[in-house]
Protein backbone atom coordinates (compact mmCIF):
# COMPACT_ATOMS: atom_id res chain seq x y z
CA UNK A 1 0.00 0.00 0.00
CA UNK A 2 1.29 3.40 -0.94
CA UNK A 3 2.01 5.59 2.06
CA UNK A 4 -0.12 8.49 0.87
CA UNK A 5 -2.96 6.17 0.03
CA UNK A 6 -2.79 4.71 3.51
CA UNK A 7 -2.86 8.17 5.04
CA UNK A 8 -5.91 9.03 3.04
CA UNK A 9 -7.60 5.86 4.19
CA UNK A 10 -7.03 6.72 7.80
CA UNK A 11 -8.58 10.13 7.50
CA UNK A 12 -11.26 9.44 4.97
CA UNK A 13 -13.96 8.56 7.43
CA UNK A 14 -13.14 10.69 10.44
CA UNK A 15 -16.25 11.25 12.46
CA UNK A 16 -16.21 14.99 12.06
CA UNK A 17 -16.12 14.69 8.30
CA UNK A 18 -18.66 11.94 8.46
CA UNK A 19 -21.07 13.99 10.53
CA UNK A 20 -20.66 16.96 8.24
CA UNK A 21 -20.88 15.04 5.01
CA UNK A 22 -23.37 12.44 6.01
CA UNK A 23 -26.14 14.99 6.32
CA UNK A 24 -27.19 13.85 2.89
CA UNK A 25 -27.49 10.25 3.94
CA UNK A 26 -29.68 10.51 6.96
CA UNK A 27 -30.19 6.80 7.26
CA UNK A 28 -26.50 6.45 7.90
CA UNK A 29 -25.24 5.19 4.56
CA UNK A 30 -21.51 5.52 4.14
CA UNK A 31 -19.81 5.65 0.76
CA UNK A 32 -16.40 4.10 0.93
CA UNK A 33 -14.56 5.81 -1.86
CA UNK A 34 -10.99 5.44 -0.82
CA UNK A 35 -8.33 2.82 -0.58
CA UNK A 36 -9.60 1.81 2.81
CA UNK A 37 -9.23 -1.83 2.02
CA UNK A 38 -6.16 -1.87 -0.10
CA UNK A 39 -4.79 -4.48 2.28
CA UNK A 40 -5.84 -8.11 2.16
CA UNK A 41 -9.52 -7.67 2.88
CA UNK A 42 -9.48 -9.14 6.33
CA UNK A 43 -10.16 -5.87 8.07
CA UNK A 44 -12.95 -3.42 7.30
CA UNK A 45 -15.12 -3.14 4.20
CA UNK A 46 -13.88 -3.42 0.60
CA UNK A 47 -13.07 -0.39 -1.51
CA UNK A 48 -15.59 1.51 -3.56
CA UNK A 49 -18.78 0.07 -2.14
CA UNK A 50 -21.46 1.83 -0.18
CA UNK A 51 -22.59 0.60 3.19
CA UNK A 52 -25.51 1.08 5.52
CA UNK A 53 -27.90 1.59 6.98
CA UNK A 54 -27.81 -2.15 7.64
CA UNK A 55 -25.17 -3.61 9.87
CA UNK A 56 -21.95 -4.85 8.34
CA UNK A 57 -19.15 -7.05 9.46
CA UNK A 58 -16.11 -5.18 10.75
CA UNK A 59 -12.91 -6.88 11.82
CA UNK A 60 -10.04 -5.39 13.72
CA UNK A 61 -7.17 -6.44 15.90
CA UNK A 62 -7.74 -5.37 19.49
CA UNK A 63 -5.15 -6.04 22.20
CA UNK A 64 -3.58 -8.66 19.98
CA UNK A 65 -6.79 -10.54 19.23
CA UNK A 66 -8.72 -10.34 15.97
CA UNK A 67 -12.30 -9.35 16.71
CA UNK A 68 -15.23 -9.66 14.32
CA UNK A 69 -18.32 -7.62 15.00
CA UNK A 70 -21.53 -6.87 13.18
CA UNK A 71 -22.32 -3.20 13.53
CA UNK A 72 -23.91 -0.33 11.68
CA UNK A 73 -21.44 1.61 9.53
CA UNK A 74 -22.02 4.70 11.69
CA UNK A 75 -20.60 2.93 14.76
CA UNK A 76 -17.70 4.71 16.45
CA UNK A 77 -14.68 2.80 17.63
CA UNK A 78 -15.67 3.67 21.22
CA UNK A 79 -19.06 2.08 20.73
CA UNK A 80 -17.57 -0.91 18.91
CA UNK A 81 -15.24 -1.56 21.84
CA UNK A 82 -17.79 -0.96 24.58
CA UNK A 83 -21.11 -2.11 23.17
CA UNK A 84 -19.99 -4.78 20.73
CA UNK A 85 -16.88 -6.27 22.34
CA UNK A 86 -17.67 -5.67 26.01
CA UNK A 87 -14.40 -3.76 26.49
CA UNK A 88 -15.97 -1.19 28.80
CA UNK A 89 -12.71 0.07 30.28
CA UNK A 90 -12.74 2.71 27.54
CA UNK A 91 -15.11 5.44 28.71
CA UNK A 92 -17.28 7.86 26.77
CA UNK A 93 -17.67 11.17 28.62
CA UNK A 94 -18.07 14.08 26.20
CA UNK A 95 -18.57 12.11 22.95
CA UNK A 96 -16.95 14.88 20.94
CA UNK A 97 -13.21 14.64 21.40
CA UNK A 98 -12.89 17.09 24.29
CA UNK A 99 -12.05 14.98 27.33
CA UNK A 100 -9.79 12.07 26.29
CA UNK A 101 -11.67 9.57 28.48
CA UNK A 102 -12.03 7.33 25.43
CA UNK A 103 -8.33 7.34 24.51
CA UNK A 104 -7.05 4.15 22.83
CA UNK A 105 -4.02 3.56 20.64
CA UNK A 106 -4.10 2.95 16.91
CA UNK A 107 -0.75 1.43 15.99
CA UNK A 108 0.57 2.77 19.28
CA UNK A 109 -0.65 6.32 18.78
CA UNK A 110 -3.29 7.80 21.12
CA UNK A 111 -6.61 8.71 19.48
CA UNK A 112 -10.08 9.62 20.72
CA UNK A 113 -12.10 6.48 20.00
CA UNK A 114 -15.32 8.54 20.11
CA UNK A 115 -14.05 10.49 17.09
CA UNK A 116 -12.90 7.44 15.14
CA UNK A 117 -15.26 5.33 13.05
CA UNK A 118 -14.99 1.59 13.64
CA UNK A 119 -14.82 1.03 9.87
CA UNK A 120 -11.88 3.41 9.68
CA UNK A 121 -9.62 1.32 11.90
CA UNK A 122 -8.68 -0.98 9.06
CA UNK A 123 -5.46 -2.83 9.68
CA UNK A 124 -4.28 -0.57 12.45
CA UNK A 125 -3.83 -2.40 15.75
CA UNK A 126 -6.06 -1.18 18.55
CA UNK A 127 -4.79 -1.11 22.13
CA UNK A 128 -7.24 -0.35 24.94
CA UNK A 129 -6.78 0.01 28.70
CA UNK A 130 -7.51 -3.72 28.97
CA UNK A 131 -4.39 -4.35 26.89
CA UNK A 132 -1.99 -2.22 28.94
CA UNK A 133 -1.11 -4.85 31.52
CA UNK A 134 0.66 -7.82 29.97
CA UNK A 135 0.23 -11.40 31.23
CA UNK A 136 -1.39 -10.19 34.41
CA UNK A 137 1.52 -7.86 35.15
CA UNK A 138 0.64 -4.22 35.63
CA UNK A 139 2.43 -1.52 33.68
CA UNK A 140 4.62 0.65 35.95
CA UNK A 141 2.22 3.55 35.36
CA UNK A 142 -0.68 1.44 36.61
CA UNK A 143 1.38 0.41 39.66
CA UNK A 144 2.22 4.04 40.33
CA UNK A 145 -1.41 5.14 39.96
CA UNK A 146 -2.31 2.69 42.75
CA UNK A 147 0.66 3.70 44.91
CA UNK A 148 0.01 7.45 44.62
CA UNK A 149 -3.79 7.30 44.82
CA UNK A 150 -4.16 8.76 41.33
CA UNK A 151 -7.78 7.58 40.94
CA UNK A 152 -10.76 8.89 42.79
CA UNK A 153 -14.03 7.94 41.10
CA UNK A 154 -11.84 6.31 38.46
CA UNK A 155 -13.89 7.23 35.41
CA UNK A 156 -11.12 9.31 33.80
CA UNK A 157 -8.46 6.83 34.89
CA UNK A 158 -8.34 4.57 31.79
CA UNK A 159 -7.91 7.56 29.48
CA UNK A 160 -5.44 9.19 31.85
CA UNK A 161 -3.35 5.99 31.98
CA UNK A 162 -3.37 5.67 28.18
CA UNK A 163 -1.95 9.21 27.91
CA UNK A 164 0.66 8.65 30.63
CA UNK A 165 1.77 5.22 29.40
CA UNK A 166 2.26 6.66 25.92
CA UNK A 167 4.44 9.39 27.40
CA UNK A 168 6.72 7.17 29.47
CA UNK A 169 7.03 4.62 26.66
CA UNK A 170 8.12 7.31 24.22
CA UNK A 171 10.09 9.79 26.27
CA UNK A 172 12.93 9.12 28.65
CA UNK A 173 13.19 11.22 31.81
CA UNK A 174 9.96 13.16 31.30
CA UNK A 175 9.57 16.38 33.28
CA UNK A 176 6.48 17.60 35.12
CA UNK A 177 5.77 19.83 32.12
CA UNK A 178 5.97 16.78 29.85
CA UNK A 179 3.36 14.98 31.98
CA UNK A 180 1.09 18.02 31.96
CA UNK A 181 1.49 18.22 28.21
CA UNK A 182 0.73 14.52 27.74
CA UNK A 183 -2.44 14.78 29.85
CA UNK A 184 -3.49 18.24 28.65
CA UNK A 185 -6.61 16.84 27.01
CA UNK A 186 -7.67 14.54 29.85
CA UNK A 187 -10.54 15.90 31.90
CA UNK A 188 -10.80 14.79 35.53
CA UNK A 189 -13.60 16.26 37.62
CA UNK A 190 -12.51 14.73 40.94
CA UNK A 191 -9.19 16.57 40.71
CA UNK A 192 -6.74 13.67 40.59
CA UNK A 193 -4.24 15.69 38.53
CA UNK A 194 -1.60 16.27 41.27
CA UNK A 195 -1.46 12.54 42.03
CA UNK A 196 -1.48 11.64 38.32
CA UNK A 197 1.57 13.88 37.83
CA UNK A 198 3.40 12.30 40.79
CA UNK A 199 2.51 8.78 39.74
CA UNK A 200 3.68 9.23 36.16
CA UNK A 201 6.98 10.82 37.13
CA UNK A 202 7.54 8.04 39.65
CA UNK A 203 6.75 5.35 37.07
CA UNK A 204 9.14 6.94 34.58
CA UNK A 205 11.89 6.93 37.19
CA UNK A 206 11.31 3.25 37.95
CA UNK A 207 11.38 2.35 34.27
CA UNK A 208 14.92 3.68 33.77
Amino acid sequence: MEENEKKKAKTSLSRRGFLKGAGLTTAGTVMVNSGLLAFDGKFGPPKGESYGPDAVRVSMKVNGIIRDIICEPRTTLASALRDHMGLTGTKVVCDRGSCSACTVYLDGKPVNSCMTMAMDVGDQEVTTIEGISKNGELHPVQEAFIEHDASQCGYCTPGMIMSCVHLVENKKNPTLEDVKHATRGNLCRCGTYPHVFKATLDAAKKMK
Binding site: R82, L87, T88, V92, L138, Q142, I146, G154
Partner: peptide, 14 residues
Protein backbone atom coordinates in the same frame (compact mmCIF):
# COMPACT_ATOMS: atom_id res chain seq x y z
CA UNK B 1 -7.68 0.77 42.68
CA UNK B 2 -6.63 -2.34 40.73
CA UNK B 3 -10.03 -2.52 39.05
CA UNK B 4 -9.85 1.17 38.22
CA UNK B 5 -6.38 1.15 36.65
CA UNK B 6 -7.01 -1.96 34.55
CA UNK B 7 -10.40 -0.88 33.20
CA UNK B 8 -12.16 -3.84 34.77
CA UNK B 9 -14.24 -1.72 37.17
CA UNK B 10 -17.86 -1.93 36.08
CA UNK B 11 -19.74 1.33 36.41
CA UNK B 12 -23.47 1.61 35.83
CA UNK B 13 -22.82 2.82 32.29
CA UNK B 14 -20.79 -0.36 31.67
Amino acid sequence: ALAKVTGSAKYTSD
